[in-house]
């Protein structure tokens, strides 16, 4: 099976967020970029499928600026990806989800692809648009928030589940197909040092991004919330008094009592 995994560099989880001087975006200065956790799950899924299906390859594709995009592609190779393609893009071409989806779709179309995997969203802007848009652009069904993905070689179909508002859904789909995976349900592996060293010299195919049509999503403002001032602590003598005071505050002050 030819498996393509689309990945995105995002700021490391515990990064202290700062606003860029123009107030319109995150200040990337000094930020360490890593694979988003959702994509780690997608890559892990690809590697598991590859191991279970002889003759499979994993091709990792990313769209974004230097050097962070190249870094996450190399990190993916260190984890076990066989091939890598980098769509070099900056500014809106790297931040507008539909522009990114179009750039990724062009790169995916150019290579063999039975199954396209990605995270259901990235941990930074959390749009979750790219997977579904990729499905449309590749004329394939797509599914978001997927867990427990299996390939049934006998029928050539994928079987998987999703936790949605309606319950635990079971699905099946033919290939080719785009699957956007839920995060951290499959315990992603970590790379070993020899593989990391080897990944530094691995070839990465580079393709340019092309301007997209259909309007633009432009970041106008990026704001951090005022620091929370700390909890209003409830004074009480008995548990019953604490309960009664809290319920009253939730009803009358916070107005969130259901």
């Amino acid at each position: 099976m030819e498996i393509v995994v689309c990945v995105k560099p995002v700021p490391e989880g515990e990064t202290r967020l700062r606003v860029r001087a123009d107030g319109k975006a995150l200040d990337p200065e000094g930020v360490k970029f890593v694979l988003t956790g959702y994509d780690e799950s997608a890559l892990e899924q690809a590697l598991l499928l590859k191991e279970a299906t002889p003759g499979s390859r994993v091709h990792v594709v990313a769209c974004g600026p230097a050097p962070r995009t190249e870094e996450v592609l190399r990190a993916s190779i260190a984890l076990g990806a066989d091939l890598a393609t980098w769509v070099e893009a900056t500014g809106e071409l790297a931040s507008d989800p539909l522009a990114v989806a179009r750039a990724l779709a062009a790169a995916v179309r150019a290579v063999p692809h039975d199954l396209v995997l990605c995270g259901k969203q990235a941990g930074d802007h959390e749009e979750g648009l790219v997977g579904a848009a990729l499905g449309e652009l590749l004329d394939a069904p797509d599914f978001g928030a997927v867990v427990d993905l299996r390939f049934d070689p006998a029928s050539g179909r994928l079987r998987f589940q999703r936790s949605t508002e309606g319950g635990q859904e079971k699905w099946e789909s033919p290939l080719p197909c785009v699957i956007a995976l839920q995060q951290a349900w499959n315990d992603p592996r970590t790379a070993k040092l020899p593989a990391i060293l080897k990944s530094r010299k691995a070839p990465i195919a580079k393709v340019p991004a092309t301007p997209a049509d259909g309007g633009r999503s432009i970041g106008e403002r990026f704001e951090l919330p005022p620091p929370r001032s700390g909890a209003k602590m409830i004074e009480f003598k008995t548990p019953e008094e604490a309960a009664e005071k809290l319920v009253r505050l939730l009803k009358e002050e916070a107005k969130v009592f259901p």
């Binding site: 967020l17 995150l26 941990g123 930074d124 959390e126 970041g219 990026f222």
Partner: peptide
């Protein structure tokens, strides 16, 4: 965005 740690305003 960022798990609620920031807010962005987009112009579509």
């Amino acid at each position: 965005v960022f798990g609620g740690r920031a807010t962005e305003t987009l112009r579509l």
